[in-house]
Design a protein around this nucleic acid. Sequence first.
DNA 1: CTCAACAATTCAGTAAAGGTATGAATGTTT
DNA 2: AAACATTCATACCTTTACTGAATTGTTGAG
Lengths: 303, 303
Amino acid sequence: MFSLPQLEAFVAVAEELHFGAAAERLNMTQPPLSRQIQMLEKKLGAQLFGRTSRKVELTAAGATLLPRARQILDMCIKTDLDVRRVSSGEAGAITVGYTAIAGQSALPLMLRRAAEGMPGVSFVLRELVSTDQMDGLVKGSVDIGLLRPIVARPGVVSRPLMQDRLVVALPEGSSLLGNMAAPQGESLPLGSLDRLPLLMYSTKEARYFHDLVLRLFASAGAHANITQYASQVPALLAFVQAGLGVTLVPASAMAFAPTGVEFHEIDGRHGIQELNRVDLELAWNEETANPAVLRLLKLIETF
Amino acid sequence: MFSLPQLEAFVAVAEELHFGAAAERLNMTQPPLSRQIQMLEKKLGAQLFGRTSRKVELTAAGATLLPRARQILDMCIKTDLDVRRVSSGEAGAITVGYTAIAGQSALPLMLRRAAEGMPGVSFVLRELVSTDQMDGLVKGSVDIGLLRPIVARPGVVSRPLMQDRLVVALPEGSSLLGNMAAPQGESLPLGSLDRLPLLMYSTKEARYFHDLVLRLFASAGAHANITQYASQVPALLAFVQAGLGVTLVPASAMAFAPTGVEFHEIDGRHGIQELNRVDLELAWNEETANPAVLRLLKLIETF
DNA sequence: CTCAACAATTCAGTAAAGGTATGAATGTTT
DNA sequence: AAACATTCATACCTTTACTGAATTGTTGAG
């Protein structure tokens, strides 16, 4: 196979149609240039130039080679630049895993800041529950995770990113609460949810929420009457909207509440305040080979 | 800039994710392969693989390089093949110059034979009068000319390709001939055209026909009453169709005769037969650097 | 703790690329 | 017509770079 320097030599001669001039352009002397062309011709088994001591002209084979040679060289230069940029983190792609809720809160903030601070880096977005994100982080199919503080897999590190709180979601104008109904916007003690049909986070995919809700109920001395399981907040809210029960969701989930659902703060008295805390973490693989990820981590250190 | 062997080495390692296996695939030993990759990384200023003594994996920069490296190598292989094919005449392009009449006779024959005998070679067609073809042959903008035997320019050689004869073209049902009118298809002595309005070939672009027509008239003792000049047969036939006069055209031009024109053979007696001969030649530049042209010349040697 | 696997390093031999000097062919000028 | 200028090719030498064999260093598995 020919070599890239040979292609460069060929292009120079083809453009100058003069070995001396081409050699000068290539910062070399004429004899080795002649030999390079001869070598190229030999390797291709094709006469590329018709040349006498007075003029040089392209043959049909040479004319065929010229545009392709230019294209190959162009591609090499572009490739060189691209690889450098990706390597320096200046460009590249980051696959972000995020929970449905983070998609409404932390993700847009992060993307906005990244768009300003590191243009040239593109994002591949994947909505995943925390455990799937963790798997992805280990396998390398996810670069950055926006997830709940679940047990980390080896090699995956994380740090707190945002705090949130749970709020109560009920069917609008529902009679579930009976005479304990509170006006829209007013806080509600968890005790008022005692024995009400509770739409619950699944133990597997949403263990963090599952456990948190149980802790809160226990702390309030209320009985959790679980009637449905779902792993994602929008699914739970759909159940609420259908009037099937009540649930607790992060406050930021109110941003995409369907109509027919009303929200109430949870009464923080009796130590509930301290327990009612939903953490969102930023997680990544410690050994990530993606420089753009490192830049991103630095960029949103002060989130 | 990196080298092609380095890209090959990179692709092999990226696909095997194992230096030893990649080295075997490349028919080399492992140490030089390791060094090639190191060199490539150094030249690109980028870590391409994350490697321990237990596993090798692509970095983001490496993942960016891989498809591009494959593309570059593919293009190199294709280019190599294409250049060889063009050089051997197996593929390539031939620019054919041809007169309007040859476009109806010799050109289709030639193209049909070429399509069978040298598939892979494409043709660029340019309808040109003979003198323009000759210029093109000298400049190299025309590879093959189908033209009249005009004076050849240095470096251009030609050989006879087809013979034809002139026929008389008259407005259909015309009264121009007066009582000398002949039934359609019957031959006509040139003397019957004496003093009739004659639509003539221009002396410059169609000198060959111009001179031939004058010779024929002189030989028949008829007076050429030239009323119009044109350089191309279709233009002359259009004049005939309009009833403006008569003219002589090659018999093969009858193929694209407009309606309203009738043709008659020229009476060949009294030595006219021998003079009435229109040659078409095949011409090319002796120093053509287009191998496909040489193949074509060989292919239609026996036309 | 030893072994096996695997990438990195060292070193010597060889192939390839570049430079200088020179030759050969072909227009151009006097 | 002869000397000259231009330009590509060749010869020869030096330096660079690549290759293979032997060896080292590191890391995970038994």
